[in-house]
Simulated assay, not measured.
Amino acid sequence: MKKYLAELIGTFSLVFLGCGAAVVSGISSTGPAGIGLAGISFAFGLAVVVMAYAIGPISGCHINPAITISMLVAGKIKTDDAVGYIIAQFVGATLASSVLYLIQSGSPTFVMGEWALGANGWGQGYLGNYNTTSAFLTETIMTFLFLLVIFHTTSKWGNSTMAGLAIGLTLVLIHLVAIPITGTSVNPARSFGPAIFASGKALQQLWLFLVAPTVGGILAALTWKGVFESAVRVNK
């Protein structure tokens, strides 16, 4: 239960801080201190960094169902733990979105739009207006690359003391590219929480952010196990 609670808190922190940065002081901020695309990217990345060092020793700091499923495919986590992790992650993301909604409701300018609370999406009316193919490819490829970094940095051949920083910076880079396309998910739980409250198009499009990151994570697990793990072992 300690591991599951750690995953719940970690995912809560990621969604609350990352989406909070986007909603409260991000690109559409009407205040003088809008942090823009780079600021939002660093908010998500730094949230992962701090959580990696805070709860990493307890649960491994997955805070992302795509990571948990990928680790399951790679044989690095048991099925019952994976199920517990995923449930905790979705609960944490939903709680974070509910708190963010309550906070935003206190603003006289708040309007619950189609993709409110930092919800992911694509198509006409969403940021760069990219189509479904672009969105699916982006989420799949970005998750694939993200997991490859995670697999190596957390392996016995990686630098464990720097793993959290490397993973967090990778997420920053991913956001810098993907925000205009999908708002950047690479994490089904991160997409689930805001979509539940935003409803509308965000909820209709949720399927892509459940499927594409999962596909990317599975492909990364198969690639790591089938290609790179043995290569790294030989080189070491």
Rank of each mutant, 00 (worst) to 15 (best):
G128W: 00
M142I: 09
F136G: 02
A135H: 08
T133K: 11
Y126K: 10
G123I: 00
A135F: 06
Y130L: 12
W115Q: 14
V149S: 08
G121S: 07
Y130A: 13
F136D: 00
A119E: 01
T154A: 08
L117I: 04
Y126A: 12
T140K: 11
E114G: 09
L148R: 05
T132S: 14
I150F: 10
G121C: 07
T132M: 14
F136A: 10
A119N: 05
E139G: 12
F151Q: 03
G113C: 08
E114T: 14
E139I: 07
M142H: 10
T143A: 12
A116Q: 03
T153I: 11
L127P: 12
G121A: 09
F151N: 04
Q124C: 09
W122T: 07
G123S: 01
G121K: 02
G121Q: 01
G128M: 07
N120L: 03
T132A: 15
S134V: 07
E139C: 11
G125K: 02
V149T: 12
G123F: 00
G121D: 00
F144C: 03
H152T: 12
G121F: 05
H152A: 13
I150P: 08
Y130S: 09
I150G: 06
T138I: 09
T140A: 15
F146K: 03
Y130F: 15
L127S: 13
L137I: 11
W115P: 09
F146H: 02
A135C: 12
L137A: 15
F151I: 05
I141R: 00
L137R: 10
Y126N: 08
E114R: 15
T133F: 15
W115S: 14
E114A: 14
G121E: 01
A116V: 03
G128V: 02
I141W: 00
N131I: 07
W115T: 13
L148E: 03
H152D: 11
W115A: 11
A135N: 01
G113Y: 07
E139V: 06
G113D: 14
F136L: 08
E114S: 15
W122A: 12
E114I: 08
T140Q: 12
N120A: 06
G125P: 02
M142R: 08
F136R: 01
T143M: 10
F136Q: 00
F144H: 04
H152M: 14
A135M: 09
Q124W: 10
L117K: 06
M142S: 14
Q124H: 12
A119L: 04
G113T: 15
A135D: 04
G121M: 04
T153D: 12
A116K: 04
V149P: 06
T143Q: 10
A116M: 02
N131Y: 05
G113R: 15
L117D: 01
G125D: 01
G118L: 03
N131R: 07
G118V: 01
G128D: 04
W115M: 13
V149G: 11
E114M: 13
Y126C: 10
L145N: 02
L145Q: 04
F146E: 01
T138L: 13
F146C: 04
Y126V: 08
L117R: 03
G113S: 15
G123D: 02
L127T: 09
A116N: 02
I150E: 05
F151P: 03
M142E: 05
H152K: 11
W122C: 06
G128Q: 05
